[in-house]
Design a binder for these strands. Structure first.
Length: 159
DNA sequence: GCCAACGTTGGC
DNA sequence: GCCAACGTTGGC
């Protein structure tokens, strides 16, 4: 099984929004970055788990977990002129952009802030904490995944 | 609101 | 293929 981290601005789509979806499942549309596209198209598998990360908000950080429930398929919002994600260079016969479906698993017991993740040397390989990284999704090693789950159990006072 | 970092675009 | 200009991301 592979592990991932996926970013979303909570004002656009939050973990609560995902929890409140029918079947607690939604497609992860609107990604317009080739590295992220390649991950969704080629690497994410049903059963993989991912951290849900809130970006561009008061406390950026990990807020929950979800599971990949459908593997990469064309992002239809690229074909819709009414969508803000419309891309006239994506041809339905040869789609440029892909998405996956994700299902809510649970909230983390507390928000795990980016600032806290940055403070742990054990996570220094995580692209999220590296300077200048702007990837909207990224792989998480099994070690990093487990480490973060241990962090979750601590109180802020211990960090 | 600022700005650093990075990706994309397009002229040449 | 180079690279300057521009747009976007996202923390602070």
């Amino acid at each position: 099984m592979n592990y991932w981290l996926m970013k979303s601005e909570p004002t656009a789509f939050s973990i609560d929004d995902l929890k409140n979806m029918p079947k607690q499942t939604e497609h992860w549309d609107g990604v317009r970055n080739y590295q992220a596209r390649n991950m969704m198209r080629d690497q994410m598998k049903v059963g993989d788990q991912a951290f849900f990360y809130h970006s561009s908000c008061a406390v950026p950080g990990i807020v929950g977990m979800m599971e990949i429930v459908r593997e990469g398929y064309p992002d239809h919002t690229a074909f819709d002129p009414q969508s803000k994600y419309f891309d006239d260079k994506s041809d339905p016969a040869n789609p440029r952009w892909f998405m996956v479906d994700v299902k809510y698993i649970r909230h983390t017991k507390r928000v795990i802030p980016l600032a806290e993740l940055k403070a742990h040397a054990a996570l220094s390989d995580l692209p999220l904490v590296r300077k200048g990284n702007r990837l909207s999704m990224m792989p998480v090693s099994e070690d990093a995944w487990n480490y973060i789950l241990q962090l979750e159990k601590r109180s802020m006072a211990e960090t």
